[in-house]
């Protein structure tokens, strides 16, 4: 009999710490892509009923740490945390993406400045408050970024690019820390 040992995308790469800033790998969680068939209204109701989560508006998320819905595109969301109930599949294309993402957390003083070195979107709290979500570029990569606190962000990038993700963010961390004070 085979035995399959699971490995996370950033195993061996993280955590990285520089001057109070840390980049860590988030605990593995179920990630499902929901793409509504013909309008999201019914899907929203179903999502609320099944997982107690509202359908996220563009650029926003709903829910809390253990169960979240992140806006992912027109009529699309990423469901984070719970295993979706089968009934959801009546309303949307439901795709397991749990293993597709390198999912990391950047936190500490200057986290905004670190991302400002890589991301062409205004991620300052005024423009990008807690719970906000952006699908954008992180240097050369596609990424999804969400703010989880005053000094913390979660970043999702392609699993295969984990090494580049860690490299790019670490270099930016070094630069920000060196320029302090």
């Amino acid at each position: 009999m085979a035995e399959l040992i699971a490995k996370t995308p950033c195993a061996g790469l993280l955590p990285v710490r520089h001057g109070g800033l840390s980049l860590t790998e988030c605990a593995p969680t179920a990630i499902h892509h929901l793409a509504a068939y013909r309008g999201a209204a019914q899907l929203g109701v179903a999502l609320e009923k099944a997982h107690g989560l509202g359908w996220p508006a563009p650029g926003r998320s709903t829910g809390a740490a253990s169960a979240r819905a992140l806006w992912f595109g027109p009529d699309q969301a990423l469901l984070l945390g719970p295993m979706p109930v089968a009934a959801l599949a009546r309303h949307c294309a439901l795709t397991d993406q749990s293993d597709g993402w390198a999912h990391v957390c950047l936190s500490g003083p200057g986290a905004e400045e670190v991302l400002a070195r890589l991301v062409p979107v205004d991620l300052r709290a005024g423009a990008f408050p807690e719970g906000a979500v952006a699908r954008t570029a992180l240097f050369h990569m596609s990424a999804l970024i969400t703010r989880t606190g005053a000094e913390s962000f979660e970043i999702f990038a392609f699993r295969s690019m984990a090494r580049t993700l860690v490299h790019d963010v670490s270099e930016a961390m070094k630069s920000v820390v060196a320029q302090r004070g």
Binding site: P58, G59, P74, P120, V121, T136, A137
Partner: peptide, 10 residues
Amino acid sequence: PYCGTRDLRE
């Protein structure tokens, strides 16, 4: 229309 004003590079 969904994401707001974004840089050309996206």
